[in-house]
């Protein structure tokens, strides 16, 4: 039996890798993948708690998150493609149209 803490540590580690990747990398596709990592880290902890508390609602929530993440990924990728077609780059430092 794997204790709950191990799952949570794994989740925290994956989440931190996601955050670290999101903050340090400048390639928009890698940043996007980092976001997916963070989402899945949350999913891990949700499933772990669901098992620990013997409550299926956590796993239902995970399905919702996966659905939302899929939708988000499709829109996000569409935006990235549109951006790439216009600017010919995936480097975020060159995207500052929203500068105030």
């Amino acid at each position: 039996m794997v204790p709950l803490n191990w799952y949570l540590l794994l989740s925290a580690a994956v989440f931190s890798i996601g955050v670290f990747g999101f903050l340090t990398r400048r390639n928009i596709i890698i940043m996007f993948m980092s976001i997916e990592l963070m989402l899945n880290a949350v999913n891990i902890s949700l499933v772990a708690f669901s098992h620990y508390l013997q409550d299926l609602r956590g796993q239902i929530l995970v399905f919702f998150i996966i659905t939302v993440a899929a939708a988000e990924a499709s829109i996000g990728l569409a935006i990235i493609i549109a951006l790439f077609r216009n600017k010919n780059t995936v480097h975020v430092d060159e995207m500052h149209e929203m500068k105030g």
Binding site: L23, V92, K99
Partner: peptide
């Protein structure tokens, strides 16, 4: 205040984090 609005994604990401 407008100076905060840099338009650079990692600035926003840092602040969020």
């Amino acid at each position: 205040l407008r100076k905060i609005q840099t338009g650079l994604m990692h600035h926003y990401a840092t602040i969020m984090a």
